[in-house]
Amino acid sequence: MQRKKKILIIKNRQDAISYAFFQSKSDHIIFIAGKGHEEQQIIKNKNINYSDKIIVLHLLEKKI
């Protein structure tokens, strides 16, 4: 059996999490890996305040 694989690359982490969140259904699980407890993201030698937890909490407020 052969399966076609679809891969979507979203380079912006917040956009990728938002996309997964709004594409998901109530019985889906979204696994967000890589940043964990970190509260900053380094982009081109700049530290930017960023938290996956805060992003998800904002998304939950919108979806509920």
Rank of each mutant, 00 (worst) to 15 (best):
Met1Cys: 07
Met1Tyr: 11
Gln2Met: 09
Gln2Asp: 13
Arg3Ser: 10
Arg3Lys: 12
Arg3Glu: 08
Arg3Trp: 04
Arg3Gly: 09
Arg3Thr: 09
Lys4Gln: 06
Lys4Leu: 06
Lys5His: 11
Lys6Met: 12
Ile7Ser: 13
Ile7Glu: 15
Ile7Trp: 08
Ile7Asn: 12
Ile7Tyr: 08
Leu8Pro: 07
Ile9Leu: 11
Ile10Lys: 06
Lys11Asp: 15
Asn12Phe: 04
Arg13Ala: 00
Arg13Val: 02
Arg13Leu: 03
Gln14Trp: 05
Gln14His: 08
Asp15Gly: 05
Asp15Thr: 07
Ala16Gln: 03
Ala16Ser: 10
Ile17Phe: 04
Ile17Ser: 00
Ser18Cys: 10
Ser18Thr: 15
Tyr19Ser: 15
Tyr19Asn: 12
Ala20His: 03
Ala20Ile: 00
Phe21Asn: 06
Phe21His: 08
Phe22Trp: 14
Phe22Arg: 09
Phe22Leu: 05
Gln23Phe: 08
Ser24Ile: 07
Lys25Leu: 08
Ser26Leu: 11
Ser26Cys: 09
Ser26Tyr: 03
Asp27Ala: 10
Asp27Pro: 01
Asp27Arg: 12
His28Gly: 01
His28Leu: 00
His28Asn: 15
Ile29His: 09
Ile30Val: 02
Phe31Ser: 09
Phe31Met: 07
Phe31Lys: 09
Phe31Pro: 00
Phe31Glu: 06
Ala33Cys: 11
Ala33Gln: 04
Gly34Leu: 02
Gly34His: 05
Lys35Met: 01
Lys35Gly: 00
Gly36Trp: 04
Gly36Phe: 03
Gly36Asn: 03
His37Pro: 00
His37Cys: 06
Glu38Ser: 00
Glu39Arg: 02
Gln40Pro: 05
Gln40Arg: 06
Gln40Gly: 00
Gln40Leu: 09
Gln41His: 02
Gln41Ile: 10
Ile42Asp: 06
Ile42Thr: 10
Ile43Phe: 10
Lys44Thr: 08
Lys44Ile: 08
Lys44Val: 05
Asn45Leu: 06
Asn45Glu: 14
Asn45Arg: 09
Lys46Leu: 09
Lys46Met: 11
Lys46Phe: 07
Lys46Ile: 09
Asn47Ile: 10
Asn47His: 10
Ile48Lys: 01
Ile48Gln: 03
Ile48Leu: 07
Asn49Asp: 13
Tyr50Gln: 06
Tyr50Thr: 01
Tyr50Cys: 05
Asp52Pro: 02
Lys53Gly: 06
Ile54Thr: 13
Ile54Gln: 14
Ile55Trp: 05
Ile55Glu: 02
Val56His: 01
Val56Gly: 01
Val56Trp: 01
Val56Leu: 03
Val56Pro: 03
Val56Cys: 04
Leu57Arg: 13
Leu57Ile: 13
Leu57Lys: 15
Leu57Trp: 08
Leu57Glu: 15
His58Thr: 14
His58Lys: 15
Leu59Glu: 08
Leu60Glu: 15
Leu60Asn: 13
Glu61Met: 05
Glu61Pro: 00
Glu61Asn: 13
Glu61Val: 06
Lys63Asp: 05
Lys63Glu: 11
Lys63Arg: 15
Ile64Tyr: 12
Ile64Trp: 06
Ile64Thr: 11
Ile64Met: 06
Ile64Ala: 08
